[in-house]
């Protein structure tokens, strides 16, 4: 089944994020070979050029490298992977703050609300 995409963002950016998540989760382990452009395009139900663009973006940021003739690989640089995890997490936290601010929460209240929600579970 094809992936679903948000409407307000270019599709390649959303594909980049999915791949980043898979890398952080270990679904694509460090140093492992990534699916070919065509394979991933079929899985996602998108144009191969879009996947190509997503891979180029990941490569530019150093999370993926190309080995000539054999394809794309996840980096095995541990520091890169740690920084990827951090950058995803700060993005989510920022999203949380943006939404909570819309609801009228102050920064302090957001932190308290997070703590309280965690305590409840």
């Amino acid at each position: 089944m094809s992936w679903t995409f948000k409407s307000d963002q270019p599709i390649y950016i959303q594909i980049v994020e999915r791949i980043e998540i898979r890398i952080v989760k270990g679904e694509y382990p460090p140093g492992s070979k990534l699916p070919s452009v065509r394979e991933l395009a079929l899985e996602a139900g998108v144009n191969p050029n879009t996947v190509q663009r997503a891979y180029a973006d990941l490569e530019q940021n150093g999370f993926v490298r190309t080995e000539r003739t054999s394809g794309k690989y996840v980096t095995d640089d541990a520091e890169m992977l740690i920084s990827l995890r951090k950058s995803l997490s700060s993005k989510y936290i920022e999203e949380l703050f943006v939404r909570m601010t819309e609801l009228g929460y102050s920064e302090k209240e957001v932190i308290e609300a997070v703590k309280a929600a965690k305590g409840e579970n």
Binding site: F5, S7, D8, Q9, P10, I11, Y12, T50, R53
Partner: peptide, 15 residues
Amino acid sequence: SVDSIREQSGKSLDE
């Protein structure tokens, strides 16, 4: 390009 339409309009092609 579809990506640039999305980028510029902040909307999907359909919207």
